[in-house]
Amino acid sequence: MFRIYLCFALMIFLVFAPKFSSYNPSMSDFLSFYLAPNSNHFFGTDMLGRDLFSRVLYALRNSIFIGVCASSLALVFALFYLLLARMFFYNFFMRILDLFLALPSLLLMMFFQSFIEGSFISMIFIIALSHYAFIAKLFESELRALEKLEFYEAALVLGSSKIRAFFKELLPPCFSLLFLLFVLNIIHAISTEATLSFFGLGLPFDIPSLGNILNDASKAIFMGAWWVIVFPLLALLMLILPLLWLSNFLQKYWGIHL
Rank of each mutant, 00 (worst) to 15 (best):
F2R: 14
R3D: 15
L6F: 15
C7F: 14
C7L: 09
L10P: 04
A17S: 12
S21W: 01
N24S: 09
S28P: 15
S28E: 14
F30Q: 08
L31D: 10
L31E: 13
S39N: 09
T45K: 01
L48C: 07
G49R: 13
R50K: 05
D51W: 02
S54R: 03
N62V: 06
S63R: 01
F65L: 14
C69Y: 14
A74Y: 01
A74N: 00
A74W: 00
A85I: 02
A85F: 07
M110D: 09
F112G: 10
F115E: 10
F115V: 12
F120K: 02
I121Y: 15
S122R: 07
M123D: 06
H131D: 15
A133Y: 05
A133D: 08
F134S: 00
S141G: 11
S141M: 08
L149P: 07
A155M: 07
L156P: 04
L158V: 03
A165P: 15
F166L: 05
P172M: 05
L178I: 14
N185D: 15
I186W: 13
I190T: 10
T192C: 08
E193I: 02
A194L: 06
A194E: 10
F199C: 09
P204E: 05
P204D: 09
F205L: 12
D206V: 06
N212R: 00
I213C: 02
N215A: 11
G224R: 04
I229K: 03
P232D: 07
L237V: 06
I240G: 05
W245H: 12
L246A: 03
S247R: 08
Q251C: 04
Y253P: 00
H257I: 06
